[in-house]
Design a protein around this nucleic acid. Structure first.
Lengths: 142, 142
DNA sequence: TTTTAATCAGACAATTTTATCTGATTAGGA
DNA sequence: TCCTAATCAGATAAAATTGTCTGATTAAAA
């Protein structure tokens, strides 16, 4: 299979976008996120736990508890979520899997891939997630 | 983990590039490919077996047997190898994992990612692997 | 023609990723 | 206070990916 993000990361991104698209202050139980996004409840719960450790979301235990963003959406970038879950290795390693790929010893597609990868990185870090609210709502139709 | 190609696919691409970089007519035993590229012998053997079924390489059994390209390198594109091993799904599915991502119902990064993905596809299908001989040799130093 | 060495090929095993289950813990409301 | 609803955490399971082993097959050489 060819992917860019792991499933964990996809789910994490979806969940954070979802929380940002709703009222940013409201506390979302894992169950609701699970239902809205079709993600196994305990799985998204676990992912959000790890994002809690990274300081991107906060959790509130007990009745009427759940998860909420730890910062305002205007302070969260997609790349932060990717970094927290998948790490940034893929932005620094050879796409063909060759060791020591560098401008000195480039793999056959080193230059072209490097450019695309940089653009992907820029895309993920250019805007904060409050800018995505509209599109996320449109996609999820809460 | 964030990847673009599976390990299988990376190895397959490396092996085919290796065979093209050598004398294109010579028969390479899996063992030699394994040593040169640091890939478990039986694993690369298996990957090349599947590429045999796809008509990209040929295998020759018995003493002095091994693998060789089924066509001239000028007729093989990187994308064919990717397609044979990983498939082309990732070039058609949403990078954030949202279902039914389309221009009508775009995910937050639909447009930007679509552009990058198209460029990646074009890069992998633009040139045939004989063009990569130089760079591969430089990288592998046979 | 038979032996033998080296291969491919398919079954098998380990690891990683993804997903689920169960129980402990917490906090709000009756 | 006690009950309930919800998270947290660790154990467990399933699936996919990656890696290894063993034997069948082939072809060269004696």
């Amino acid at each position: 299979m060819t992917v860019f993000f792991s499933k964990k990361c996809e789910y994490g991104l979806q969940a954070v976008l979802f929380m940002a698209a709703r009222d940013e202050e409201c506390v979302c139980p894992a169950e609701e996120i699970s239902k809205q996004l079709n993600i196994p409840k305990e799985f998204i719960s676990k992912i959000l736990q790890s994002l809690t450790e990274s300081g991107i979301v906060e959790s509130k235990k007990g009745k009427s508890g759940g998860f909420k963003l730890a910062k305002h959406p205007s302070k969260i970038k997609l790349i932060s979520i990717v970094e927290a879950i998948d790490g940034l290795d893929s932005f620094n390693s050879c796409v063909l899997g060759f060791p020591h790929c560098s401008p000195d010893k480039p793999c056959p597609v080193h230059h072209q891939w490097g450019e695309l990868r940089t653009k992907a990185y820029e895309m993920l870090s250019s805007e904060t997630i409050d800018k995505f609210k509209e599109k996320t709502l449109n996609k999820i139709r809460i």
